[in-house]
Design a protein around this nucleic acid. Structure first.
Lengths: 281, 281
DNA sequence: CGTTAGCTTGAATACCTTCAAAGTAGGTGG
DNA sequence: CCACCTACTTTGAAGGTATTCAAGCTAACG
């Protein structure tokens, strides 16, 4: 039930590959090791101006996870940061009442596991929503790099600060936006993210369920479904199950509240009627 | 109107005080400089095991702000982190529609300004809710310390990670808790924070308005007021304007939804009546 | 002592949830 | 290959929670 498929790669998981780089580093599963430069590109931070030759040896291990597998669990001792090379995930918190809270949907170029630094244990768990290729970054080795490369250090701070700003935007959205606006902005977020990854920003498939979206946005799955239908009805998007086509990105960005629709007009009419009856009685 | 009272202390704001420490470093306003050790204590992180003697010279400047003054504004170039030595503040974000969002209420021992690291500009503003004594920490100087003191560096990461975890808890609360639970937990948060600062955790004064609390919790000021009244009515707290007395901290911690009260019973009764009338008509 | 910002409370209503039922899609075993 | 099962999605109707609008109140400050 727990499906705790955790690395059983033994101890030397963050050292230089024993049997050398150049050769058969590509396998059935894809790439197995990445250089620091590749990791920096993935994170969209400037790569260090490789001064010392020894750096080039430093490689970060990849690991593959299948849909449903957990990358780390709550309470597990922290030692790694994780960077998504491909695939889709969710990170989940369990609150004091035992209910789940989806915190993010990491995808290519995203980092996760940062919550474990403070407290030395992960406070969230990460679950693969599709087959994933994840780069393992031993935190100790990574922060040690900061000492030799000043630019890299400030970049690490920058990555953490970026996460903070992202979460602040989420707080603001949860605190002040209507259900429609939250769902619309979620689509905008996905669109931008897919564009960044080099895919179509106007046509894509959702990798998560309505339940997961709703949980993430502080809504029920029914509200998410209804809102998708409503956005579909006014032509801003075409939604069919998991498939999304975005027709008016700009409108989605600035949407605050849906225009009163047919069904709403009906509701209002019904209420007015009831009132007349009350007054008449 | 903008009240942008920013440091006009010139360039050398983070160097060793010109006219030496020991002497009249205490003024009408309080302490003017703090050592690294004091800063670490304030942040609740281990102080570096002062190896090199020169470190002892390194001092961080204090600055006083009066109620209403801004410590930094949105868009202002980032160069400082701020640590609260005394007083109360709020940090505020402006979303794309121009509405404000309160993100935190920093108080003694809290750090703020971290959102500015990524992007080199602050994305939020910080406003003093009372007279404040703030320690200015030039980010460059601070991160440079990480290189010489390994423990300090990981502590800096730890502080940022702690902020991330705090924001995650906020997201979870906003997404899943009822208005009552949010207000109750807000009081618990204040109680714990006051206790940590050495004040009473059961009796304190709010430093922020209902409007600010509501904005912070994603509620209207009326809902906050009503919820305070309700918590007051069932005896969990005594609320009178800004003064709070906590009677049952444990109940506040685990509160999910308020038991149906007198006034609610009234509402229900009224509805039932209306229904009968409709049926009768 | 008047003015203003903040707080409380009531009533009406909008928004979102809850409960319920039926439809769709993908995978597995007969 | 089809039937079945399960997980996911859609939609409707009823109901509850929080908001909005409004009015009166309190307290601080000049």
């Amino acid at each position: 039930m727990l499906m705790t498929h955790l690395p059983d790669t033994g101890s030397a998981s963050h050292s230089v590959p024993a049997n050398s780089p150049a050769g058969a580093a590509w396998q059935r599963q894809g790439k197995l090791w990445s250089s620091l430069k590749e990791v920096c590109e993935l994170l969209r931070i400037p790569a260090p101006s490789s001064a010392s030759g020894t750096d080039e040896e430093l490689q970060f291990q990849h690991m593959q996870f299948k849909t449903g597998q957990r990358i780390h669990t709550i309470g597990q001792p922290f030692d790694m940061l994780y960077i998504v090379n491909s695939g889709f995930l969710k990170t989940v918190l369990i609150d004091e009442f035992g209910s789940e809270q989806v915190l993010s949907f990491p995808m290519k170029g995203d980092i996760f596991g940062v919550d474990g630094i403070h407290g030395k244990h992960y406070t969230s768990e990460a679950v693969a929503l599709s087959n994933c290729d994840i780069i393992l970054v031993p935190f100790k080795a990574f922060s040690a790099l900061g000492k030799t490369h000043a630019e890299l250090e400030s970049a690490i701070y920058g990555v953490m600060s970026r996460e903070l700003v992202r979460e602040q935007a989420m707080i603001s959205a949860l605190a002040s936006l209507s259900a429609e606006a939250r769902v619309a902005r979620f689509l905008v977020f996905l669109s931008q993210r897919f564009t960044e990854m080099g895919y179509s920003g106007t046509q894509f498939n959702l990798r998560m369920t309505r339940h997961e979206i709703g949980n993430y946005l502080g809504l029920t799955l029914e509200t998410v479904s209804r809102t998708f239908s409503a956005l579909n009805a006014i032509g801003l998007v075409a939604v069919d199950q998991r498939s999304i086509v975005i027709h008016d990105l700009q409108a989605l960005k600035t949407l605050r509240r849906l225009p009163p629709s047919r069904s709403r007009a009906k509701q209002l009419a019904a209420k007015a009627l009831a009132k007349q009856q009350l007054a008449g009685a």
